[in-house]
Design a protein around this nucleic acid. Structure first.
Length: 214
DNA sequence: GTTAGGATGATCT
DNA sequence: GATCATCCTAACA
């Protein structure tokens, strides 16, 4: 039988490239999240690049720590971090090894397993906001600290919580870029956020606002 | 439709 | 002790 395009996993060479090439190339790809409860497939519609040790918006800006160690490792692995006391966010580490760069997955369209995602995100009112925003995406997919460092290009996909399939990339003219969301300290200076034009699962842009003290 | 403010804790200075 | 690669709800237009 002929394999559908969606069935081909992206290999490590895909991620072992500069992050600014990988990030837009991830749009339209399918992330498969496997759990005991069942699989969820997500078509990526919005991502952000965090580009190496000189990027002031990056967790790696001030060097390697226990928290960001995965970003310094080999490409094709998941970097999961906990933020705002409540949420997890999912990144994919890009190459080359030793260069701490990665792609934050900010939004996607759930194509398989929407019922399971709804169970994890009862606050979600519509299909398109199940994974609209990085913490929503991680919540819908059931991602937490346990997946930090997981291989997303495993030799045997059955052994990994993640696989990424070729999917159906959008036409190049449908790919938009702009400033990153929610990063301060000059980190929004570069147009390193990429999304699929007009897709309802793309999160609304919010400029970084310093939090007020109570 | 928009906006303001609170939740909540790991991480780093 | 301040800062977060955020989300949700309530209030208001």
């Amino acid at each position: 039988m002929i394999a559908a395009p969606e069935s081909t996993p992206l290999d490590r060479a895909f991620f072992d490239r500069p992050v600014l090439k990988v990030a837009p190339d991830l749009l339209g790809r399918t992330l498969v999240r496997s759990t005991e409860e069942g699989p969820i497939a997500l078509r990526l519609t919005e991502v952000e690049a965090y580009a190496g040790p000189a990027d002031p918006g990056s967790h790696a800006y001030r060097g390697r720590t226990d928290r960001n160690a995965v970003m310094f490792g080999p490409p094709g692995h998941a970097y999961v971090y906990f933020t705002y006391g409540m949420w997890f966010c999912l990144n994919l580490v890009c190459g080359p090894e030793g260069d701490p760069s990665g792609v934050l997955l900010r939004g996607g369209d759930i194509t398989v397993g929407a019922d399971l995602a709804r169970k994890r995100r009862p606050a979600s009112r519509r299909l398109h906001d199940l994974a609209q925003g990085p913490a929503r995406l991680a919540t819908a997919l059931g991602v937490d600290r346990a997946q930090n460092g997981a291989d997303v290009c495993p030799a045997d996909p059955a052994t990994s919580p993640f696989t990424i399939l070729t999917g159906t990339p959008p036409a190049p003219e449908a790919i938009r870029s702009g400033p990153r969301t929610g990063v301060g300290g000059g980190g929004a200076a570069h147009p390193w956020r990429f999304w699929i034009d007009g897709d309802p699962t793309v999160s609304p842009y919010r400029a970084h606002a310093p939090r007020r003290r109570r």
